[in-house]
């Protein structure tokens, strides 16, 4: 139970800028999730979400032997998003990841923003988005899509985790991406199988929780768009990152991303400065803040449009 899961980034691996950017995005998304759930759900839902968070936590204790001493492990992000809806799932996963970091040091505090993004927000978009897209279809199609979504959610989390490590200068792209993806493509299979089996079981015993009406009520069509975009992004980026690490490195270089993470923000950032401030430490800090604000703004606009699409 206490072994660190391979996706929980501890403190010390991500640079301050990368941690800050993902904290900013996470805070915006969780903020929207809070206002959404406050509006749409009754006060009764809070204990429900708390117990559901405990459920995800406890379900991660379930494992099944795969082969050769390794065992499949359940992460639960996609399942939570499908059954609880994306906004509630985000809050639930935030609570789970927060407690894992605080109580068990499973993942860091500074890195928590990135961890919540990787395992709570991304998985909610993929899990719910894809499932929402087929909510009116036959049972077989829905279960198949749920399985694919669960698998893809794990793979996408692994991909973004390795990209964060690489941008922080903690890993070499050509090693970390194939390694992380290789492991998680297998782990994801276990996740997919468990998710499908759990959904089958829930549908059989409590069909009211998963009927079309309750699924469409939990999140709007915007989620389908978000889910499909994130999924396509992950599907296209994974093979590209593992077969052409140089290409990705060049793209990042051109866009100025690579210097973000090479070291502590004050030292090795010669190119990453604000022109009129010159190459001073202040200039780098300002540049970092500007970068964070841009991402924040993007996330906000995305959130707003999601909200509109949701109505």
């Amino acid at each position: 139970m206490n072994s660190p899961l391979p996706l929980h980034i501890p403190d010390g691996f991500l640079t301050v800028i990368i941690s800050g950017v993902f904290w900013a995005v996470t805070i915006v998304m969780v903020g929207i999730a809070i206002s959404k759930t406050n509006k749409s759900l009754g006060e009764k839902q809070v204990p429900l979400m708390g117990v559901m968070a405990a459920f995800i936590f406890a379900a991660q204790m379930l494992n099944f032997p795969v082969a050769g001493g390794t065992s499949g492990h359940f992460l639960g992000g996609a399942l939570a998003a499908i059954v609880l809806g994306p906004w509630a799932a985000m809050l639930v996963m935030t609570a789970v990841i927060g407690v894992q970091a605080l109580l068990f040091q499973d993942g860091g505090l500074l890195a928590m923003g990135a961890n919540i993004f990787n395992m709570g927000i991304l998985t909610a978009a993929i899990g719910f988005g894809l499932y929402r897209g087929v909510s009116g279809r036959t049972r077989k199609i829905r279960l198949a899509v749920a399985g694919c979504a669960a698998w893809l959610a794990v793979v996408a989390s692994a991909l973004i985790t390795s990209l964060q490590l690489w941008l922080s200068g903690a890993s070499q792209l050509q090693i970390v991406v194939p390694a992380m993806l290789g492991v998680h493509i297998l782990i994801g299979l276990g996740e997919a199988l468990i998710t499908v089996a759990a959904l089958t079981f829930i549908e059989r015993t409590r069909p009211d929780l998963l009927n079309q009406e309750s699924v469409t009520e939990k999140g709007g069509r915007g989620w389908i768009v978000a889910g499909v975009i994130v999924s396509i992004g992950a599907v296209l980026l994974s093979p590209f990152a593992s077969t052409h690490p140089d290409g990705l490195e060049r793209v990042a270089e051109d866009m100025g991303f690579l210097h973000l993470g090479q070291s502590a923000p004050y030292r090795l950032l010669p190119d990453y400065t604000i022109p009129f401030l010159g190459a001073t430490p202040l200039s780098t800090i300002v540049a970092g803040v500007v970068g964070a604000l841009v991402v924040l703004g993007l996330a906000f606009v995305l959130g707003q449009s999601l909200r509109k699409a949701g109505r």
Partner: peptide, 19 residues
């Protein structure tokens, strides 16, 4: 995996109803 999935589903329903 199917057995484990049934356990997860069972756990979910027990938690849901307990809440």
């Amino acid at each position: 995996a199917k057995v484990t999935g049934n356990l997860a589903g069972q756990l979910f329903l027990r938690s849901y109803e307990r809440s």
